[in-house]
Amino acid sequence: MDPFGEISFLTRSENRITVLETLAGGRYTEQELTDETGISDVTVKRAIDAFRQRGWIRETETGYTTTPVGELLAADYRRLAGTMDVACHVGPVVDLLPVDEMDFDLRLLSEARISDPDDVDVLEIVDRWITLIREADRLEVFAYRTGRIVAEPIYEGIEAGTLELEAVVPPSELEQIRSDPTTREFKQKIIDAGGNYYLAPEDQPKPYSVGMFDDLAAIAGWGSDSKPQVHLESRADPIVEWTRSRYERAKADAEPLTAEDLEP
């Protein structure tokens, strides 16, 4: 058999994939497969016959089940599907995210919440940040840009005693804060209310932010116009560990900022 031809045989039919994956999860009769998958009995029978000929499944007294070859094929297809899902979601914005630094299995990103790379909505991304800020008890962030819009809910949370803030900013963001009186005033109020800002020694090569909203990891990529272009969030342990580690590395080299330090 031609491997590429067999890959094409399986993947060009969602019904075949569904039948194979269902059988990889248990033992089914033809009727049970039809009931479980919602696929017609004719289509199920064709798939079963084709799979039996290829040695992917076998018939038992109580129904059909995958052979070790079929189990391997189903597992590898799931891995490929997960990888392709990451490629579809992350591929278009790979240059905006610190993918080269991520030491976890990138397939985990297929289960992350990621903003639509084909329909970038800056306000939607910012609104999501505001929601996360208002829901969090503690925010730890290494921020490429902070902005006046998110400064207000941060200040409100700290002033109300419902939010703790630890934020590391690069030199370029400090200059942005100093040049914008409204943003500067909010940041100074945040510091006076008990929030903590730190200055990183230098800007990072790629403009991105990482943050921990309690136990939720968030990563954002920024465009050349200093506007957010992509936002992803996850509670998967490896992603959380990487995000927290990246923030802690940034903070370890940073110096505390006072309200007076924000003055031009």
Rank of each mutant, 00 (worst) to 15 (best):
G82N: 13
P92V: 09
A75M: 08
P68F: 02
V99L: 14
L139G: 04
L108E: 15
G147P: 00
A112H: 12
V86E: 09
D121F: 11
D119W: 11
D35H: 08
D100V: 13
V122K: 07
H89D: 15
R52M: 10
Y155P: 00
E124L: 08
F51I: 05
D119Q: 14
L109S: 11
V122H: 10
L139S: 07
I48R: 09
E61A: 13
A50V: 06
R78W: 05
S115Y: 08
R134C: 06
G157H: 08
E159F: 05
T34N: 02
L97E: 11
I57W: 07
M84P: 01
T60V: 04
D76I: 06
I57M: 01
D116Q: 13
E101P: 13
L33G: 00
T37P: 08
D41Q: 12
S110N: 13
A136G: 03
I125D: 03
C88K: 15
D49H: 03
I133Q: 02
M102K: 11
T34D: 03
A81F: 07
G82D: 09
T43K: 04
D85C: 14
V86S: 12
F51G: 06
F104H: 09
G82P: 04
D118C: 13
L108N: 12
Y144F: 05
T83L: 14
P92Y: 14
T67A: 07
G63S: 01
H89L: 15
I149L: 05
I39A: 01
F104N: 11
Q53A: 12
V69I: 11
P68L: 02
E101V: 01
T43C: 03
G82R: 14
L80N: 10
R46M: 03
M102L: 14
L73G: 00
I114M: 14
I158A: 00
Y64E: 01
V126N: 07
